[in-house]
Design a protein around this nucleic acid. Structure first.
Length: 131
DNA sequence: TTGTTGACCTCTT
DNA sequence: CAAGAGGCCAACA
């Protein structure tokens, strides 16, 4: 179980321990949002960052995803793409084709490593979870 | 400890 | 319209 404790950060963001390793709440929230992405939908790093507070922290979302490989349960990282709907992170999967295969299973079709109808598939946590 | 790097995004030339 | 630079924050050498 993830245990949250207080931290000396100004935002009072709690430190969360996952698998015995401490993770910043920013990371944990990224993982949480990614888990909430509905099947067949995708979101962007910037959208997650914006939902968490700072849209300029999109790079941190990328870092979180990089670390996400050791996070359990496994995250649907294939549902997270960049602003252009391009599979920028597919090279970081087990195989270069794993990401598009996983997307294909969810009826998300690609073209030139770009998601077709990305606007329709886009699941924005700022909108969907803002309630 | 400082400096570089990174699955990004936005503004500016 | 295309290309460059800045900014965010954490991990690594």
């Amino acid at each position: 179980m993830a245990k949250a404790t207080k931290n000396k950060q100004p935002n009072s963001l709690p430190i969360v321990f996952i698998n015995g390793k401490k993770e910043s709440s920013f990371f944990e929230q990224v993982y949480d949002v990614v888990r909430l992405i509905p099947k067949g939908r995708v979101t962007s790093y910037g959208a997650i960052a914006a939902y968490l507070g700072s849209k300029k922290s999109a790079r941190m979302v990328g870092w979180a995803m990089n670390n996400a490989h050791q996070i359990l349960p496994k995250l649907p990282a294939h549902r997270v793409v960049n602003r252009n709907g391009m599979l920028s992170g597919k090279a970081h999967f087990a195989t270069p084709t794993l990401m598009e295969e996983l997307l294909a299973k969810e009826k998300v079709l690609l073209k030139n490593d770009c998601i077709i109808n990305f606007a329709e598939k886009h699941w924005d946590p700022t909108i969907e979870l803002a309630l």
